[in-house]
């Protein structure tokens, strides 16, 4: 019992420490096009955390507009966004808001 309990805590701690993440399916007809990629880069920049957008086996730094555009993510594709760093909780909340509002 004790053993399992402690393992669980360990796991939880690990998750908290490593990163925050969410998945989102793109609804915008053009996919992640220039404008939302720009909004994303602009909003991601102030955060200290490393923020990554990943889909279909490729990933890009959310702070880099061209790398995100180069992913060529289309409508209907599921993306995974992760934030890793000191302010990852705020960062992931901000990212989630942007995806919901713009994409």
């Amino acid at each position: 019992m004790v053993k399992i309990y402690s393992k669980k805590i360990k796991q939880n701690r690990k998750e908290v420490k490593i990163m925050k993440t969410f998945t989102y399916t793109i609804k915008d007809a053009l996919g992640i096009h220039a404008r939302p990629a720009g909004v994303l880069a602009k909003e991601a920049k102030p955060f200290a955390s490393t923020i990554t957008v990943a889909a279909a086996g490729k990933s890009a730094d959310a702070k880099r507009i061209m790398a995100v555009m180069a992913l060529g993510i289309k409508q209907g594709v599921q993306v995974t966004v992760t934030a890793d760093g000191a302010d990852e909780t705020d960062a992931i909340a901000a990212m989630e808001k942007i995806f919901k509002e713009n994409l």
Partner: peptide
């Protein structure tokens, strides 16, 4: 008008 804002973001892009 946003295309011009996107242009300036592209110019500030890290990889570029």
């Amino acid at each position: 008008a946003q295309i011009f804002e996107v242009h300036s973001m592209m110019l500030e892009d890290g990889d570029y």
